[in-house]
């Protein structure tokens, strides 16, 4: 999933758009989802954000749905917990109930509404965040943080971690392939053993790579601060009116009597 998100973040119609513009829209939508306490706001935000991702940014709908689906699974589990009550006594006013031995599982109208409100808020916010991460590579978000004067140490750690994730992922894949070729995962016992060896070896490789990276940084004059040139972006003139329509519709949905 990480590689898929990263690939589309670098290959969508909004790739070269200033990350501040995209982040601004996403943050506004998230704030409205969280502050306007109506389920309609969340569902509307979800619809708008799917439209922006699929039709405007031209990200394949399967990818957008797959990312949202993964998040929805976690959200659904949380929402079930909110909607359902567990008690030893039989509930008095429940919309639905069933007994499980001495336990009663029930869903009331209030808890269902709370759960739906929570789900709509969370899905609307998640969709807004998805638009941001599917259209904006992490390197642009780091650049945005740099412009927002985030601490240099945070920027450096994010830059190096992002690069290290992919290097280690490649290494991990190569190691798993090498282990599989030698029946490393042929049985449950072998899987356990191979996984343990993989973990310990990956730690050593990560350490060696960090040492080599440090040497390479020094070879290019590193003096304790990672300084690089800023990236260039364009302002998307259609994203302003689109954002205005989205925000206006959410405000109306949230405040209309």
């Amino acid at each position: 999933m990480l590689r898929v998100i990263d690939r589309y973040a670098f290959a969508n119609r909004l790739r070269a758009v200033d990350p501040a513009q995209k982040a601004g829209l996403a943050v506004l939508v998230i704030l409205l989802c969280l502050t306007l306490d109506r389920p309609l706001v969340g569902w509307l935000a979800l619809g708008w954000m799917l439209a922006v991702a699929i039709w405007y940014a031209r990200i394949p709908w399967r990818v957008v749905i797959a990312v949202l689906g993964a998040e929805s699974t976690f959200l659904a589990l949380s929402v079930i917990g909110v909607a359902m009550s567990v008690s030893f006594d039989q509930p008095v006013a429940a919309r639905w109930m069933t007994s499980l031995g001495p336990l009663w599982l029930s869903v009331s109208n209030e808890s269902l509404q709370t759960a739906l409100r929570l789900l709509s808020r969370a899905l609307g916010s998640a969709a807004a965040l998805n638009v941001l991460i599917l259209t904006t590579p992490l390197v642009d978000l780091i650049e945005l943080l740099r412009r927002l004067r985030a601490p240099a140490l945070l920027i450096e750690v994010m830059t190096l971690s992002y690069r290290a994730i992919f290097v280690l992922l490649d290494t991990l894949e190569q190691m798993v392939t090498a282990q599989t070729a030698r029946l490393g995962y042929a049985s449950w016992r072998a899987t356990l053993r191979s996984s343990a060896l993989l973990g310990s070896r990956l730690f050593v490789v990560a350490y060696q790579r960090s040492q080599a990276l440090e040497t390479a940084l020094h070879a290019r004059g590193f003096t304790g601060e990672v300084r690089v040139l800023p990236l260039c972006y364009r302002i998307d003139r259609w994203l302003w009116p689109i954002g205005a329509v989205v925000v206006a519709s959410l405000v109306v949905a949230g405040w209309w009597p």
């Binding site: 590579p137 992490l138 990276l213 290019r220 004059g221 990672v226």
Partner: peptide, 24 residues
């Protein structure tokens, strides 16, 4: 360096190449 993966530290090519000149 022997392995480019040990040298390339930045997420973008542009920024990685700019690292050395700025350090100078």
């Amino acid at each position: 360096m022997q392995s480019p993966d040990e040298q390339l530290f930045s997420a973008s090519v542009w920024q990685d190449i700019s690292f050395g000149p700025l350090n100078l």
